[in-house]
């Protein structure tokens, strides 16, 4: 009795099977509704023409999107976010991929410890990372240099948690990598760099790309760490936060909708990339 066949064949022996199945279906439906209803409301309210969003809906409008398009504060915040995300993604993708190699291929004495080290920043609440860095920059480094909070400190904060994601994703792809391909390349006279460039990198590229996409979304959406490390400039989440704190304008719903849809797209794309690379590898292994 294999999994993944028709539901009837996978039915358990229990005579409660049918009820179980239906209650599970209902539960799943309810869960998906729970996940998506808030998002649906947010999108709905972004089209509402009342000044205070909420039910009942009195009329629909594109007004808030027009306001959005002509709001220079939002645009500069968006640009700042993109700027940070690009720098973070480039550094994190390169540095993270570099770490993955010795991690998987036993270039270091204690891969377990290294792995733990790069797991910690993912597990530790961003709150603690943010506070630690804030105290570090504001007071810890004070006797040596005077660090001004700004985009550099934000980038530093984002690197702490994005690099580990790249490390884990690339390492998990590298784990199943068929090293005979590299040996074949070496047998045929390719040096280590050439092998890396023409054999290894193209094969793990989907994982690196997925990692990079993840970095972009994580960095653009990042709120907690940025909250502590931002200077006079504002990233988009920080701008939205101030708007929310100082009175909700329906414009916030519009910008939130845009962010949500863009990151939905990026994550879906990244996820498809990741699975397709995994499937490719599985097929190759068979």
């Amino acid at each position: 009795m294999a999994r993944g066949t028709s539901p009837l064949e996978t039915m358990p022996v229990s005579r409660f099977a049918r009820q179980t199945r239906w209650s599970l279906i209902v539960l799943t439906g309810a869960m998906l509704a729970f996940l998506y209803l808030p998002i649906a409301f947010l999108i709905l309210f972004s089209f509402e023409d009342a000044a205070t969003p909420g039910l009942p809906i009195t009329g629909l409008t594109l007004h808030w999107y027009q306001v959005l398009a002509s709001d220079s504060a939002i645009q500069s915040a968006l640009l700042t976010s993109i700027e940070v995300a690009v720098v973070v993604t480039i550094i994190a993708s390169i540095v993270g991929t570099m770490v993955a190699f010795p991690l998987v291929r036993r270039g270091v004495r204690a891969p377990g410890l290294l792995r733990l080290g790069f797991t910690l920043p993912i597990m530790i609440p961003g709150f603690l990372i943010g506070i630690g860095l804030l105290i570090f920059f504001r007071q810890g480094l004070h006797p040596l240099i005077d660090v001004q909070l700004g985009l550099y400190t934000v980038v530093a904060g984002h690197l702490v948690f994005t690099i580990p994601f790249v490390v884990l994703i690339v390492a998990s792809r590298l784990q199943g990598f068929d090293r005979r391909l590299e040996w074949a390349a070496a047998d045929l006279g390719a040096g280590p760099w050439r092998t890396l460039r023409h054999i290894v990198l193209p094969l793990i590229a989907p994982a690196i790309l997925a990692g990079a996409l993840l970095c972009v979304t994580l960095s653009i959406d990042e709120f907690v760490i940025t909250f502590f490390l931002i200077g006079p400039q504002q990233t988009l989440p920080l701008y939205i936060y101030t708007q929310i704190k100082f009175g909700v304008t329906p414009e916030v719903n519009a910008i939130a909708t845009v962010i949500l849809l863009v990151s939905l797209l990026a994550v879906t794309l990244g996820s498809i990339l990741l699975t397709s690379s995994r499937r490719l590898r599985r097929r190759r292994a068979e």
Binding site: F41, L42, F45, D221, I240, L264, S271
Partner: peptide
């Protein structure tokens, strides 16, 4: 995928969405 995707999207926006609910 349907479960994972919103969970990777903006944490701030998802919390904020509940303010109206």
């Amino acid at each position: 995928l349907a479960v994972i995707v919103p969970f990777w999207t903006s944490y701030l926006v998802r919390v904020y969405a509940w303010q109206a609910i």
